[in-house]
């Protein structure tokens, strides 16, 4: 069952962070959205960003990837040039009460930074080796088909979590600026998450891809808008996420001593 908890603190001025998790002896899957202002003194003093949390099931982990995003928009009289961007940064569990994030300062001048933690943290040397899952192709359908996807649009489903990889191929011309919606056949309906499309040419931030926000809920994929270079050739937008399934909430999973869970919008 999904285990929900709130952070107990952090060293970079981010405020309280709501986590959704699935935890086992050898690994944990964590989902959270973290925003901070790089101008704040706590952030500037930190070498590594640390989030303090109630006891995790594992005491340390190997490095995993999380997604750092920023907004960068230029408003003209008739349109907005969207140069939102992002990339992968490193994260790890230092001890059972501390999640670390790589301090990645390249986009601090953009203002608020948002990090999407949709990651699996695994321990190593566990005395047993990797267990194989089963790949499931996601059947993306629409009443009028205007979105087309790479064959690498798939998931690997487990009882309490799912790995998701989606890769955009093309969109019919007349729908390129419309809100997108599609049914995700074969994908669990108990996943509710904002997910980040990384990809698209980013003219004003050429060191990284563009970033566009999408949402998955009840087996429906939506993406209200994309950054301006989304469909550039060779910049294949993709989503990479380990997501916790909601399932049935276990009442005994509320953490103690960390304050009541106050909602989760990721």
């Amino acid at each position: 069952m999904a285990r929900l908890f709130n952070s107990t603190g952090n060293n970079f001025g981010a405020g309280q962070i709501a986590f959704k998790s699935h935890q086992e002896e050898n690994f944990v899957v964590l989902n959270a959205k973290v925003s901070y202002d790089p101008a704040n003194a706590a952030y500037q003093a930190a070498d590594v960003l640390e989030i303090y949390v109630p006891d995790l099931y594992i005491e340390r982990s190997a490095i995993t990837g999380v997604i750092l995003t920023f907004h960068d928009r230029y408003v003209y009289s008739s349109y907005t040039w969207n140069n939102d961007g992002g990339t992968a940064i490193k994260s790890w569990i230092k001890d059972k009460n501390t999640i670390c994030l790589e301090k990645f300062t390249n986009f601090d001048e953009k203002g608020e930074i948002t990090i999407y933690i949709q990651a699996l943290y695994t321990a190593l040397a566990r005395g047993s080796n990797t267990v194989k899952g089963t790949r499931t192709r996601i059947d993306m359908t629409q009443e009028t088909q205007y979105l087309y996807w790479s064959s690498e649009t798939f998931c690997v489903i487990f009882e309490h979590w799912v790995f998701l990889h989606m890769q955009f191929r093309s969109c019919s011309y007349s729908y390129r600026n419309e809100p997108w919606e599609a049914q995700m056949g074969n994908f669990p309906t108990d996943v509710n998450a904002d997910v980040v499309f990384l990809g698209g040419s980013n003219q004003y931030n050429p060191s990284v891809n563009g970033a566009s926000l999408a949402h998955i809920e009840n087996g429906v994929f939506t993406c209200p808008e994309r950054m301006s270079g989304f469909e550039s050739t060779g910049y294949d937008p993709f989503i990479f996420a380990f997501l916790v399934r909601d399932g049935v909430q276990d009442e005994s999973s509320e953490p103690s001593g960390s304050g009541a869970y106050e909602g989760f919008d990721n």
Partner: peptide, 13 residues
């Protein structure tokens, strides 16, 4: 490439 996770993942570096 480390397979010692005891989990459904391989660890890459």
């Amino acid at each position: 490439v480390d397979f010692s996770t005891g989990a459904p993942v391989v660890q890459f570096d």
